[in-house]
Each structure stands twice: as C-alpha cells, then as structure tokens.
C-alpha cells in the first residue's frame, strides 16, 4: 500500500449530460513515469485536475499519497497548459517561479533566502537563468513553458503533473527537459505523469503508457501499449510518427 502514489477508484466526472471521465480505475506507484495519451477532449486535463483536487469527481474516490488530494497539494508540482493565464501581468520570470515556493514560505511571510535558492536552481534546470529578470509577457511560448516547468520544480515535488509541456519547444530543449524529468524520476524518485501528444519521444522516456478517451483504454507497459496503438492505427502510424528507438530492440 505504501508505495501507491495515486489511486483512482471508479471515478466519474460528468457535466450535466456530458460524461468526461467514465469509471476510471488507476493505480500509480511511487517513482512511476507515466505518459498519458489520447485524443483531444478525451479527458486528460480533467484527469490531472481530479488528481489535484481542483475538480471533484461526480462519483468515485481519489487518493493521493494515501490521503485526500486537497491535503497533499504541497507535494505536487503542476505544469498547466499555457493558454489559460494572464499574459499581460507585469511579473518577472523569478517572481513566477517563486510562486512554486508560496507554501514553503507560508502565509503572511516573505520568500526566504532558501526559497530564492530553490527558485534559482529550478530556473537553471530549464536553462532560463539569462531571462531571470525578464518580464513574462516578453517571452516566447516555448520560454513561458520552461518558466512554468521551473515553477513546478521549485515546489520540490514528490509528484509532478505536466499537461502538454513540450508543445512549441525546439528539439534540443525538449530533449533536455525529457532528460531532466528522467533524472528527477530516477535520482529524486519523483512520480511523473506526463500528458503528451508527442508519441515519437514521450514513450521513450516514460515507463508506462495510459491511453484515455473518456475511459482508460489501455494502461500498462509502453511496449504493449505501443503494439495496441499500432494495431489501432495500422500502417498510418508509420506515416504519422517516427517510431521510438526501443522498437528495434
């Protein structure tokens, strides 16, 4: 029991007549690196928000690190999709990343030297030190994504949830961030759930794949998952993506 990071038990999310998630059973162990895939509108973001406790399931139970999600939020780093926040806000890269330390700093207090140090380290990890005093509104989409990843890292999380963090990043940055996630997963034992459309690279780094389209269609090892995707898409798969390396093993 102790090594379970996240457990979802017959979780449903409905908005009126529309069912977004249907009977989700999912057990994610500590140190898992899961790549969550599936079509747009398949409920991937909703599932992350259920794990964060931001969306209450219509039915079913969610537990995170053995407790209700709301009680474990300080252990979770979250990288949201880029589209939803206030771009015009006059705020620097450092101040955004410091938000990851807001719980560590505590209510009614200023950020400490230690908070600043964590923020610097996180910014360094995503290679943005040169931008530290730049305004967020002056950054490109890819740069903002790296800032958001740094903010989640600054939390010093036990669980990291990333909602399509790689879109519009160039290839070398992508590789760097994948390697970073891999290191966090292996060395710091961080549990990772990565939502991604990047079927060429993401499964190379992840250990497990889940395919979600309202229901969990598949959850297991990436090799079997890949076979399933291949069967589903047939020859089109080869046209659509470059197959990942492990297929040649």
């Amino acid at each position: 029991m102790d090594d379970v990071a996240i457990r979802l038990d017959d979780v449903w999310v409905r908005y009126g007549e529309v069912t977004i998630l249907e009977s989700i059973d999912l057990t994610i162990r500590r140190r898992d690196f899961l790549c969550l895939m599936g079509p747009n509108g398949g409920g991937k973001t909703t599932l992350l928000k259920v794990i964060l406790g931001l969306i209450k399931p219509t039915h079913g139970r969610v537990s995170v690190l053995g407790d209700r999600p709301e009680r474990k939020r300080r252990f979770i780093g979250y990288v949201p999709q880029i589209s939803r926040f206030n771009y015009d806000f006059p705020i620097t890269v450092l101040d955004v990343v410091l938000m990851g330390r807001i719980r560590h700093a505590g209510l009614l207090r200023r950020y400490s030297a230690e908070d600043r140090e964590s923020a610097y380290r996180a910014i360094e990890a995503v290679d943005m030190l040169n931008y530290i005093d730049k305004k967020v509104s002056d950054l490109s989409g890819g740069e903002i994504r790296r800032v958001l990843i740094a903010r989640a890292l600054a939390v010093n999380p036990e669980i990291l949830l990333l909602d399509e963090p790689m879109v519009s990043l160039d290839k070398s940055t992508k590789t760097k961030i994948y390697e970073l996630l891999k290191d966090l997963n292996e060395d710091r034992k961080v549990t990772i759930i990565l939502v991604s459309h990047d079927i060429s690279a993401a499964p190379t780094y992840a250990e497990k794949i889940a395919i979600l389209n309202r229901r969990i269609l598949y959850y297991g090892s990436k090799e079997d998952g890949w076979r399933l995707l291949e069967e589903a898409y047939g020859d089109h798969m080869n046209l659509a993506v470059k197959l990942p390396d492990y297929r040649s093993d």
């Binding site: 931001l54 979770i76 939803r84 926040f85 206030n86 939390v155």
Partner: peptide
C-alpha cells in the same frame, strides 16, 4: 496571475 496553479499548490 494564475488562479489555477495557486489553487493546485
């Protein structure tokens, strides 16, 4: 700046 993240944390 970002209500959702602030809630999530």
């Amino acid at each position: 700046f970002d209500e959702e993240f602030t809630a999530a944390i």
